[in-house]
Simulated scan of single mutants.
Amino acid sequence: MRVMVLVKASPQSEAGVMPSQDMLARMGQFNEELVKAGVMLAGDGLHPTSRGARVRYSGSTRTVVDGPFSETKELVAGYWLWQVHSLDEAIQWLKRAPFEDGDEVEIRPVFEAEDFGAELTPELREQGERQRAQIAARS
């Protein structure tokens, strides 16, 4: 199963405070373990919301809201995409991550094609597979 691991923002990350050299080294080591174990598929940190935007939808109207966004505990500062056997395995990996007091990280399973049942027609499934192949070819 694939899981998205969402690193929640903090007041420091939203202020653009970069991690210390020690934290970068510890996180780099943890990422190395994930890669060697075949768990890590992708992962990156995100700039503060002051450099981002949101698009809100209401009927045919699209409204753009520029960052920063006020509610820090609902914001994402970074992510990983992991391939694991179970949610419990993801939790066990995350328990080893070098986060600090007060940090919060969320794990969410990623939908797979079979999760959509009959609504995902063979044509739609083929379209998704073709798109994933095109993305992989660019890497």
Rank of each mutant, 00 (worst) to 15 (best):
M1V: 09
R2H: 13
V5Y: 10
V7F: 13
S10C: 04
P11I: 01
V17R: 10
V17A: 11
M18D: 02
P19D: 02
D22I: 06
M23A: 15
A25N: 09
G28F: 05
G28L: 00
Q29E: 15
E32K: 13
E32A: 14
E33R: 15
V35Y: 08
A37R: 02
M40V: 00
A42L: 07
G43P: 08
D44Q: 14
L46A: 04
H47Q: 14
H47V: 08
H47E: 11
R51K: 14
V55H: 03
Y57G: 09
S58R: 15
S60G: 06
R62S: 08
T72L: 07
G78M: 05
G78E: 08
Y79A: 04
V84A: 03
H85Q: 15
H85M: 04
H85F: 08
H85W: 01
H85R: 15
L87M: 15
E89R: 01
A90L: 05
W93V: 06
R96P: 06
F99H: 11
E106N: 08
P109Y: 05
V110Y: 10
E112N: 10
A113P: 04
E114M: 13
D115V: 09
A118C: 09
E119Y: 13
E119A: 14
L120W: 00
T121A: 02
R125Q: 14
R125F: 11
E126W: 03
G128P: 08
E129S: 11
R130I: 02
R130Q: 15
R132E: 10
Q134R: 14
I135F: 13
A136P: 07
A137M: 12
R138G: 07
